[in-house]
Structures are given as C-alpha cells and as structure tokens.
Amino acid sequence: MVQEQLQRPGEHLPRIAHPPPLGQAPVRDSKRPGSTVITFRASSWTSFIRAIAEDDVPSPPC
C-alpha cells in the first residue's frame, strides 16, 4: 500500500517478502537494490533521520 503511494511512473520499487522484525529498520542503498541490507535499531534510525531533517548532522572531517 505505502509502496504504491511512493512509486513514481516508470520506477521499480522492490517488494518486501516479509516485514522486518519489530524494532528494527532494514536499510539498503537505493542505487543498488540488490545490495546487502543493513539493519539498525528503529530508535537509532529514527534519531538519525530526525537529525538530518533538523540539519543537525556534523560534517565528516576532511
């Protein structure tokens, strides 16, 4: 359902075979849909996304 709402014409979004375990957030490189999935605690992923939205992520050192 959500997948269909986010999909753009001509864009393919992979189907999820099963939901992730409760409390986990599986993440994959969107440019490499066949790549390995990295799993984060959902609370950690939420904090990361919130920090990005608030522009509160430090730049990496040069």
Rank of each mutant, 00 (worst) to 15 (best):
R50F: 13
F40P: 00
E4G: 06
I49W: 09
L22I: 01
A25D: 01
E11L: 09
E4Q: 08
K31G: 02
P33M: 03
P33D: 04
P21D: 06
D56Y: 08
A42K: 12
A42Y: 12
P20M: 04
E4H: 06
P26N: 04
P61T: 09
I16K: 11
H18G: 14
Q3L: 07
I49S: 10
F48A: 00
V2L: 06
E4V: 07
D29M: 05
A53E: 15
R50W: 12
Q3W: 09
T39F: 09
D55F: 13
R32H: 13
W45F: 06
S44E: 10
Q24Y: 09
I16V: 14
S30G: 07
C62E: 14
G34N: 01
R50A: 14
R15P: 00
W45A: 00
P21F: 03
Q5K: 14
G10K: 02
P9Q: 05
P21K: 06
P60W: 03
R28P: 03
R8Y: 11
D29R: 07
S30R: 11
Q24N: 08
A53R: 13
R15M: 02
T39W: 03
T46N: 13
V57N: 12
A53T: 13
P20A: 03
Q3C: 08
A17W: 01
D55S: 14
P60M: 07
V2I: 08
G10I: 02
H18D: 13
G10Q: 02
L22G: 01
P20T: 01
W45R: 00
P21H: 04
G10D: 00
P33S: 02
A25G: 03
K31S: 08
Q7K: 09
S59C: 11
P19H: 09
D55L: 15
E54M: 14
H18M: 14
E54S: 15
I52C: 12
V57I: 13
P58H: 04
I49H: 08
P9D: 10
R8L: 12
R8G: 07
I49T: 12
R50T: 15
G34M: 01
Q3E: 08
R28M: 07
R32C: 12
R50E: 13
I38K: 04
R28S: 07
P21L: 01
V57A: 11
L13F: 03
P61K: 10
R15C: 02
G10T: 01
I49G: 06
Q7M: 05
P60E: 05
E54Y: 15
C62L: 14
A17C: 02
S43F: 03
P26L: 04
P19A: 09
D55Q: 12
L22Q: 05
I52S: 05
S35G: 08
R28W: 06
M1H: 12
I38Q: 05
E54D: 15
D56T: 11
P14L: 01
A17T: 05
E11A: 10
P26F: 04
Q5M: 15
H18W: 15
G34V: 01
E4D: 08
Q24T: 13
M1W: 14
H18P: 04
T36H: 09
R32L: 11
K31V: 05
R15F: 03
P33E: 04
D55R: 14
H12T: 14
T46G: 11
G23A: 00
I38G: 03
P9T: 07
P61E: 09
T46R: 13
L13I: 04
M1E: 15
R8C: 07
G23Q: 00
Q5V: 12
R15D: 05
A17D: 07
Q24I: 07
F40A: 02
R28F: 06
